[in-house]
């Protein structure tokens, strides 16, 4: 194998798979978004008609889509800072000591990240239940009236978001913890010699050196929250009255519940463009930061 050919051999299999299962489907979705594809169309392609951009026009007039979009903005605004700051905080604290006790604690913080979504739905539905849930029972012990965790339109957003924050921190804590351990000891010692206290060392040594890891965590978290789906899907099914429906969930419902695949594909493409734009903006901003 020549050196010129080598990179293609290395990259080839992965690119082939990504192209087949990542890129090609989104192109298909792009085409489908220009049709009236529904279940009948899936069964017999002759039933499909081109409808131009009318799916997009309909989408931007659909109040449910706008509601889902604003919900998603809310979830991103709530979730991303919470996940990043919480992960960073816990990672900093966990990094304080390398003793066995601290190491043992890591596993507990990682548990939510390894719990499958079906299990999450079971446990959290139970915890949140208005009449029979554990949370309201504990609150009732101190005389608080039942809280409608998943039924109050505003509160439900926070409740669903909380579960996702809970689930989202584990992996990020590990990534940030790893990055912290990669910072050479000498840096801290030098800072200590200069008379920096604990907080100053964290602020002026640790955080700047973590910037790349933090950037990575922020970008992946942001992408994840823009695609927010699992938690509202299993906990509220987007309710009450659409108040926890994210764009992904909206797409899913239009597609699989409503069999409107053309319409759902238009929503998909809009979501994809939003995610790509936000991610590219972040990359651009970071580049400017570095310059």
């Amino acid at each position: 194998m020549t050196r010129r050919l080598a990179p293609y051999v290395f990259v080839g299999p992965a690119m082939l798979l990504l192209a087949t299962f990542g890129v090609f489907p989104i192109l298909v979705a792009g085409l489908v978004s220009l049709t009236n594809m529904n279940l009948g169309g899936l069964a017999r392609w002759s039933n499909i008609k081109w409808v131009g951009l009318s799916n997009y026009a309909k989408l931007f007039r659909d109040p449910d889509f706008w509601q889902a979009l604003w919900n998603t903005v809310f979830f991103v605004g709530l979730g991303v800072p919470c996940v990043v700051l919480l992960s960073l905080g816990v990672a900093l604290l966990l990094n304080r000591s390398q003793g066995p006790f601290f190491r043992a604690l890591r596993a507990f913080y990682f548990v939510p990240a390894i719990t499958g979504i079906v299990a999450i739905s079971l446990v959290w539905s139970y915890l949140y239940n208005t009449q029979f849930g554990l949370l309201n029972y504990l609150l009732s012990l101190v005389g608080v009236k039942p809280v409608q965790w998943l039924s109050d339109p505003t509160l439900a957003k926070f409740s669903v978001g909380l579960v996702a924050v809970w689930r989202g921190t584990g992996l990020n804590i590990i990534i940030l913890l790893a990055a912290l351990q990669g910072i050479p000891r000498d840096y801290y010692e030098a800072a200590a010699l200069d008379g920096a206290n604990g907080w100053q060392r964290t602020r002026f040594v640790t955080v700047p050196l973590l910037s790349y890891a933090l950037f990575f965590v922020t970008v992946t978290t942001l992408i994840g929250w823009l695609q927010f789906f699992d938690e509202p899907f299993v906990l509220t099914d987007g309710g009450p009255l659409g108040h926890t429906t994210s764009v992904s969930l909206f797409i899913y419902k239009e597609g699989f519940r409503g069999s409107q695949f053309g319409y759902a594909s238009a929503g998909s493409l809009v979501l994809f463009v939003i995610i790509a734009a936000v991610t590219l903006l972040q990359l651009r901003l970071r580049r400017r930061d570095l310059e």
Binding site: V11, A14, M15, L18, A19, T20, F21, G22, V23, F24, P25, I26, V28, A29, V32, L42, T220, I223, Q227, F229, S248, I251, Y252, G255, F261, S265, S268, L269, L271, F272, I275, A276, T279
Partner: peptide, 24 residues
């Protein structure tokens, strides 16, 4: 551009690609 594609696939929601992927 290949690496850009790699990054771009991270941005595609699963629900979107389910039916095309299934057909493939």
């Amino acid at each position: 551009w290949m690496f850009f594609l790699v990054l771009a696939t991270m941005m595609i929601p699963v629900q979107v690609t389910m039916i095309p992927t299934f057909l493939i």
